[in-house]
Design a protein around this nucleic acid. Structure first.
Length: 465
DNA sequence: TCTGGGGTCCTAGGACCC
DNA sequence: TCTGGGGTCCTAGGACCC
């Protein structure tokens, strides 16, 4: 599919020949100038923090990554005082606190819950929704220009009223252009947070793409930017005008598709597996430790906890894994950086946390340096297959865990909350209120965690009337 | 002192087969 | 003694996204 698409576009040199059929069906829908609607929450994590804590509205708020490491989301006010995403918190903490910045540990349980509500509300306004990330979705549109604008505004109001989150909307013929239109909507208050690509193109012509550095185009990362710059391609307009065949040759089909998308030719396919939820092809669970861990004994505690968490996700999508990989590493910022990884093939595909946990530990057992300070570790489940499809000869069954410990864990998790029970260290809970708080020294730091008002009875917000 | 986590897709290159 | 070329499959690594 992707290949035939590429061949077609490459040979046609940019503009496709339409078939005579003008039916609003299948791929033809996406040839319409307003076919793709991208709805994206403004400063999502920071906005979520404000939902149940309205005093934060208008104030500089930042949300930190796990372990309170880096800034990952900023409110408008925090952006205004010049805080940059990705900055390590320890480097700016003093100044930020002096400036009245309020920091929060990331509260993914809250964000996931609000994301779910937001997506549900938005799904009602268009025929097809493709959830792209926790805070944005593509909506497929077949309405007229006027109807589309009306619908986008109703969608924005519904999310704002129903969930308390502001979203911006970009409308364009392709996803890449919708990203650009969405960005424009966020940057230009006059747009009322809904921007049509065709409008800004009509008003500003080539200046729109000329004003966008190539590094800001969706799909262009740091490495590719550097290489493009050396070829004299510095703006989105330069990339749009580049030869797709040359780009494909020097880079990849991915970037070639970006060139075509910038020209208004849709090439990025639907990535979501309908609305029923996506089945992952690999599952990774990894964390940084709050302080360095030495020795296999302690490391295996962490591996065991991560393996159980990974199995929980494996079970949820009804898959089995054929192999388990584990890794650990010292700090990449230290002189003696080392990373150790190894994988183990299971005798039979399994979703049993006991089996997976043991495999993860076995993978690293005799490989680690007993004295090295490890700062992170992770467990990866690979070679996933559908549990229902699994058939072998008699006597060679999958190591399924039908009535065993995994199911007991699932049931207990559903009835109580995650991590009230578990194997080994995964079952211990310390005094703190953090999910992963096992009382061990390595569990992650979340010193500034807000309430999980939508998922925990004991943390429900209190309203004073 | 202190720098996130979880994914996807593509490509190159090796192994193997005929 | 000489030892082609093309296809397929797999894996590791690179690059990207949010």
């Amino acid at each position: 599919m992707a290949n035939s698409m590429r061949a077609e576009h490459s040979t046609l040199g940019g503009h496709s020949v339409e078939s005579s059929a003008n039916t609003i069906q299948g791929a033809d829908v996406f040839r319409l100038p307003n076919a793709i609607v991208l709805a994206d929450a403004n400063n999502f994590f920071a906005s979520c923090e404000t939902v149940f804590n309205p005093q934060l509205a208008g104030r500089p708020v930042v949300v930190l990554s796990n372990n309170d490491g880096c800034v990952v989301s900023r409110s408008a006010a925090a952006k205004q005082i010049g805080i940059v995403n990705g900055t390590p918190w320890f480097k700016i903490r003093d100044q930020a606190e002096h400036d009245g910045v309020i920091a929060r540990s990331s509260n993914y349980e809250l964000y996931a819950s609000l994301s779910h509500r937001m997506m549900h509300v938005m799904s009602g306004f268009f025929s097809h929704q493709e959830v792209y990330s926790i805070d944005e979705c593509f909506l497929h549109n077949t309405m007229t220009r006027a109807r589309t604008e009306q619908t986008c505004n109703r969608l924005r109001n519904a999310v704002l009223r129903g969930v308390g989150i502001a979203v911006s909307v970009g409308v364009a013929p392709t996803k890449t252009l919708a990203k650009i239109a969405n960005h424009w909507a966020k940057e230009h208050p006059a747009s009322h947070n809904v921007t049509f690509w065709t409008d800004i193109l009509h008003e500003y012509g080539d200046d729109v793409l000329r004003s966008i550095p190539v590094s800001e185009v969706w799909g262009v990362g740091r490495r590719i930017t550097k290489k493009l710059m050396s070829m004299g391609i510095t703006t989105a307009l330069d990339l749009q005008r580049a030869d797709p065949v040359l780009i494909q040759h020097r880079f990849s089909v991915l970037l070639e598709r970006t060139v075509l998308e910038l020209r208004g030719i849709p090439c990025v396919e639907d990535a979501s597996n309908a609305s029923s939820g996506v089945r992952r092809t690999q599952i990774l669970c990894s964390r940084m430790f709050s302080s360095p861990v030495r020795g296999f004994e302690t490391l295996s505690q962490a591996l065991s906890v991560y393996a159980q968490q990974a199995c929980h996700r494996l079970h949820r999508q009804n898959s089995l894994c054929g192999s388990v990989a584990a890794f650990c590493s010292t700090s990449p910022f230290s002189k003696e950086y080392s990373r150790i990884g190894n994988s183990v093939i299971l005798d039979d595909p399994s979703d049993n946390p006991m089996v997976v946990s043991k495999a993860a530990c076995d993978a690293l057992r005799h490989r680690i340096d007993e004295h090295a300070p490890y700062i992170r570790a992770g467990v990866m489940l690979l070679d996933l297959s559908d549990a229902q499809d699994f058939n072998t000869f008699e006597g060679m069954d999958a190591q399924r865990d039908e009535h065993g410990i995994g199911n007991v864990l699932e049931i207990a998790t559903r009835r109580f909350v995650p991590r009230r029970v578990g194997i080994g260290y995964g079952g211990l809970r310390g005094a703190g209120r953090n999910d992963a708080d096992t009382g061990a020294t390595w569990t992650m730091r979340r010193d500034m965690l807000s309430i999980r008002g939508t998922t925990r009875w004991d943390e429900m917000p209190i309203v004073h009337a």
